[in-house]
Nucleic acid binder design. Structure first.
Length: 424
RNA sequence: GGAGGGGUGGCCGAGUGGUUAAUGGCAGCAGACUGUAAAUCUGCCGACGAGAGUCUACGUAGGUUCAAAUCCUGCCCCCUCCA
């Protein structure tokens, strides 16, 4: 368990968060210094969607460990920089978002962080800032004179984000070219305002981060540090956080706690240990024990992983519910009232409703054709009984206590509730 | 401003008048095997329709033709070279 600020580095190294650091020793000393007090560290998040997904979870956990070690985490919303668009790792310019979209997205992201960090006024309470607060009001000429002169085009051209674009002969607009300067400026601004000395981020942010560190030193002789986490993929090479059905979102409005729990429960064997270290706060010796489990026993480790990660994102209650729903559904084959459900008018069932339509209504198939295919291939179940007739009808006899269960494939389940017409 | 190349299904990428809802790969879905894992094998993979079939689709708008993703024209967008 973390006991002091200096333990932060040890912890994140042991748990696999560290990829690169600008100056480990100096940072370590700064953290160990008792006279300097808590330090600030920030990670920037662009407001390109109304929630964050699992891809950002490593960053969020970094801030959480930072706070737990007695330091102050700063979440920097890119209200200003989102209006530019980070060219890092992209071949094309990002679509420009409207100010209203950005504001709306920031609101959603704010909710996510409330689950992971403690916000407030105290010295180690988390802050959420918006770089639009200082970027929007910048005076072009004075900014160029004060900061622009510290950047050489020669050097900027050597950064991957720029170099790769140019090498591939893809256009890079002047607008995007400025992104790294503004991100560097953010860091300096946060240092001035909030004694922030560390910027963290994914390894693709290394160039942007180093720029900030250097700018701070040149302009203010500030001792700033940068630290990046490795780019994470699953063992089969897939990018973290994206699945067939889309991104694995961190807020419940965009992905139910049950589906979130299922995502972690379905982790590949080879990833379990790594994920436990990164996405949960279980002690390392406990993780080592779980990781050693073989064969089917490893499923126990996956459940523990799912429970721990879901508890952080959605709370203990939602987690218990999701776990119980999964247990009843998968281990007992029983009907659980907490599966994702859709309402259908009892009226409509009375005359018999096509099974294929129900599958579509329940979100288990994208179209009627797909639903029929599913049925023909033997992948559709009604109340746990395989139905192979694509023209099958379902009527009220299928209801048990007003509910029937649909299954697509082995893992996707949904409930259909019959609701009397009058109640709709 | 001039010359040339290009825009095809979620992505990559063939096709250059009919047998083309459009080869192939990736992704995805289902089945088998399993442990709600991975790997492998098999099948599926535009929408609607019980089906025959109908509709929509190859940047966009028109045209030629019995018939167009394929030919012609205008327009939009991207790239390369020249000035």
């Amino acid at each position: 368990m973390i006991s002091s600020r200096a333990d932060f580095l040890r912890t994140i190294i042991d748990r696999g968060f560290l990829h690169q650091c600008t100056d480990m020793e100096a940072l370590s000393e700064r953290l160990a210094s008792s006279s300097l007090g808590p330090a600030g560290a920030y990670i920037g998040f662009d407001a390109t969607a109304s929630s964050l997904h699992v891809g950002s979870l490593m960053q969020i956990m970094l801030l959480r460990w930072w706070q737990r070690s007695g330091n102050q985490p700063i979440v920097l919303m890119g209200g200003g920089t989102t209006r530019i668009g980070d060219p890092t790792g992209r071949d094309d310019s990002r679509k420009l978002l409207s100010d209203a979209d950005i504001a709306n997205n920031m609101e959603g992201i704010r909710k996510v962080f409330a689950n992971y960090l403690t916000f407030g006024e105290g010295p180690t309470d988390a802050l959420m800032l918006n770089n639009a607060d200082w970027l929007d009001g910048l005076n072009y000429i004075s900014f160029l004179r004060d900061y622009g002169r510290h950047f050489t085009i020669n050097r900027m051209l050597t950064f991957d984000s720029v170099k790769l674009r140019l090498e591939r002969e893809q256009a890079l607009t002047f607008l995007e070219f400025n992104y790294m300067i503004l991100q560097a400026y953010d860091f300096v601004e946060l240092w001035k305002r909030n004694r922030c000395v560390l910027q963290m981020g994914g390894s693709d942010q290394w160039g942007n981060i180093v720029n900030g560190v250097e700018l701070g030193r040149r302009v203010h002789q500030a001792a700033l540090y940068g630290l990046t986490s490795p780019l994470l993929t699953t063992s089969s090479g897939a990018k973290m956080g994206k699945t067939a059905s889309g991104a694995v979102w961190l807020n419940a409005e965009m992905l139910s706690p049950y589906d979130f729990w299922q995502f972690w429960r379905n982790t590949e064997d080879a990833d379990v240990g790594r994920f436990l270290r990164l996405y949960t706060e279980l002690p390392l010796d406990e993780i080592a024990r779980l990781e050693a489990l073989d064969g089917a026993e490893r499923n126990e480790a996956k459940k523990i992983l799912a429970n721990a990660v879901t508890a952080l994102a959605h709370g203990a209650e939602a987690t218990a519910e999701a776990a119980e729903t999964a247990r009843r559904t998968f281990e007992e084959g029983a009907l659980s009232q907490n599966l994702p459900s859709v309402d259908v008018a009892t009226q409509d069932l009375r005359g018999g409703m096509a099974l294929s339509s129900l599958l579509v209504a329940a979100g288990l198939s994208a179209s009627l054709g797909e639903a029929k295919r599913l049925i023909q291939q033997g992948g559709a179940k009604l109340n746990d009984v395989v139905i192979k007739d694509p023209a099958a009808k379902v009527d009220e006899d299928a209801l048990k206590d007003g509910v029937l269960k649909l299954t697509a494939g082995k893992k996707r389940h949904a409930l259909v509730r019959a609701i009397p017409e009058t109640a709709l």
